[in-house]
Design a protein around this nucleic acid. Structure first.
Lengths: 247, 247
DNA sequence: CTCCAATCGCGTACGTCGTACCCGAAATAC
DNA sequence: GTATTTCGGGTACGACGTACGCGATTGGAG
């Protein structure tokens, strides 16, 4: 056994499947453990998704899981890629980059809202098969304009960054609600409300004050707010394309 | 004492300063604790920044800190705003929005690189005084074009999202290095390298493969890579301004 | 100066976590 | 049957955040 083997990406360590020879056969699987972990995280948050709790849900102990997953962090990588697997994309791109990138953006947002725990786990880009599939589809939307692949990467990144950030904002208060037990109205009224009022009344931060007073974004529906920001990003991408009227 | 008092934002709970009356005088301060915590996090990572460790550095116990900070999460809020305080901005905007936003972007990146732990702590936007000051400056850069404040918010958000994401990518391997002890070369060669090679050789993910084969971004210097992406974002913002040639 | 009330410093302790270690149970090949 | 290999999971260890409580310190009132 090499030294590096213990420190290699989870995607390079497939679970031992269909072994031949002596020895007991595994009673669980990575996919099963991952699915249960996602269910717990959806219902109770990522902090409640402990090895003991997952084991309990499977009717076993915490240590049994380590036959399938090297470390908890690796399990989280599996969870992150698993939920991206919910994204359904057409076989072929539509031919309209705006349609294609909007599709990816909205589907990614859907994943984020269904699994709010994943938004706070911003880390290195996931390299799992599902994530690669979505990433590839997004890049393909910008293919055919004669752009260098680095430009496509940059432009696609703008969409990805926006979606991640928008989803984080959208569900940010949810995590807090889980910890404190207050709902959004309470959160606005009791947690940040008085402080924001205090800041506004202080008179510093002129633009922040205008945001609070004149801004309509926070009064829009979440869907409309997301679309509003996405339109700006897509307009920005259009500026990077050679000729958006043709093709 | 109201029920909500324990659950209010740290920014609404200033430390008791210059109290008159009986009672021992505090031997430490929020600023001091925050500074020590940032030093530890810089040197050893956020996971090493435990209450016990901070106390040890101050020559005291863990529980003493709770006289100054309600919870560890609140201390992290203080740390996040404290490092933003390193950003120095001119009193007046330059008048060129591109210059001003570039300045904010580069300074924010600098903070991220000097304090790599803060990149992984993506949460609700920090509302501390330093963060508000930078946010206000960025918004002011887009004032005077006749844009609605919501449009300025959206466009500024694009810069903020890009910087956060770029910094995260840039230092992402650092956190991993701290845990595994491998440097960047080892990381590329042993951790993801074999897997990426495996993925490329599989032949799926055509665009991902082109990124690996034709992409020059990962071979550029970090500075150049950051600037490359930033230029695309700024070009995108220019598309949202009414007339970029004048003014 | 004496005494009281308020506040700070912080030791102890509890419940929780990830996971290293280890051994008995189970499954297969011969 | 027996040897060999793998799985299941109990026990245990060293962290963590932090609730609780008490002695030490301080300023003001008498």
């Amino acid at each position: 056994m090499s030294i590096a083997e213990q420190q290699v990406s989870i995607w390079m360590r497939p679970e031992n499947v269909e072994r031949s020879g002596p020895g007991r056969r595994p009673g669980y699987s990575r996919a099963q453990i991952t699915r249960v972990a996602v269910e717990i995280a959806d219902a109770e948050g990522i902090d409640a998704t402990t090895m003991r709790r997952i084991g309990q849900e499977l009717g076993t102990g915490a240590m049994s899981l380590y036959r399938y997953v090297p470390k908890r962090d690796d399990l989280i990588d599996l969870m992150l890629d698993a939920v991206v697997g919910e994204i359904t994309l057409p076989e072929q791109a539509s031919g309209d980059w705006r349609t294609d990138l909007s599709l990816v953006a909205h589907q990614t947002r859907g994943v984020g809202l269904r699994h709010p725990w994943q938004a706070t786990l911003a880390r290195r880009p996931t390299l799992g098969p599902n994530s690669l599939r979505v990433y590839d589809f997004a890049l393909r939307a910008l293919d055919g304009f004669g752009l260098h692949v680095d430009e496509m990467t940059s432009l696609c990144g703008m969409v990805g960054d926006y979606v991640a950030s928008a989803v984080r904002d959208e569900i940010g208060w949810l995590d807090h609600a889980r910890h404190t037990g207050m709902d959004r109205k309470q959160w606005m009224a009791e947690y940040v409300g008085p402080y924001v009022r205090h800041v506004v009344e202080s008179g510093e931060y002129q633009m922040f004050n205008r945001t609070i007073r004149e801004g309509r974004l926070s009064h829009m529906s979440p869907d409309a707010r997301f679309q509003y920001g996405l339109n700006h990003v897509l307009n920005g991408i259009a500026a990077g394309l050679p000729n958006t009227t043709t093709r």
